[in-house]
């Protein structure tokens, strides 16, 4: 029963079935979605940590892998992330009480001067689905905001996004400012115009060419 529910939930997240009312994917029309199945799983006594580790994280890993292989694209990935969020909403109280431990905190924002949010949002959702608590600072985030949030959340990892060649240069002063007050804070950067060489040059610890690469890096540093 437990295994069956977890498999069903994992399938909902993998294929982006948010709830029963959601028309997508067509082959699951009318069936329960991530929302209902998570509720059912908790009522059946399945541990929230099992839901997180054995359904959500497993599913989001598959989603990331399929995206990397061009088997799915951003719309499908967004719906998977939405399904994951629908499930995660039921788990929030257990995170708050400490009954379920997350892998860590992840602070994310689009660098100042840049108002793009799709890459940042997508990666934030994937990171949450990978078991991290995500603190989303939004777009056009000033240096002071990153620094202040790092100070308030010792040990958190930071992710900075930029989508323009004109704004990616703003990442270095953010990294410099964070490292100045917290040299051990790990920072990952991402965004269409970036490269691993550029990430190294500006002093970032990690670079995610795509969300899955970012998740792999996070898993590595949190292991």
């Amino acid at each position: 029963m437990s295994l069956e529910l977890l498999e069903k939930l994992s399938e909902c997240v993998e294929f982006g079935k948010i709830n029963q009312a959601s028309p997508y994917p067509p082959q699951m029309k009318g069936q329960s979605g991530a929302d209902e199945i998570t509720k059912e799983a908790l009522e059946a006594g399945i541990a929230p940590s099992d839901i997180l580790n054995n359904a959500l994280i497993t599913a989001m890993n598959k989603v990331g892998q399929k995206y990397t292989e061009n088997k799915i694209f951003v719309p499908q990935m967004l719906l998977s992330a939405k399904a994951m969020s629908a499930s995660m909403a039921h788990l929030k109280p257990f995170f708050a009480s400490g009954a379920v431990q997350r892998k860590g905190k992840f602070i994310i924002g689009t660098v100042f001067g840049d108002l793009h949010d799709i890459g940042k949002n997508l990666f934030g959702m994937m990171v949450e689905g990978a078991g991290w608590e995500v603190i989303d600072l939004g777009i056009d985030v000033k240096i002071e905001k990153f620094v202040e949030t790092v100070q308030q959340n010792p040990g958190a990892v930071v992710g900075i996004s930029a989508l323009l060649t004109t704004t990616m240069v703003n990442m270095k002063p953010v990294i410099d400012a964070i490292k100045a007050i917290s040299p051990d804070t790990k920072i990952i950067v991402g965004g269409a115009p970036l490269s691993s060489d550029f990430a190294s040059q500006i002093g970032a610890d990690g670079y995610g060419k795509n969300p899955q690469e970012g998740i792999v890096w996070l898993d590595k540093i949190s292991a």
């Binding site: 982006g16 997508y24 719309p75 967004l78 719906l79 939405k82 949010d117 799709i118 949002n121």
Partner: peptide, 12 residues
């Protein structure tokens, strides 16, 4: 309406 919303609406 935002990139996320456009992309999801292609499906929904």
């Amino acid at each position: 309406k935002g990139s996320d919303n456009v992309l999801m609406d292609l499906i929904m």
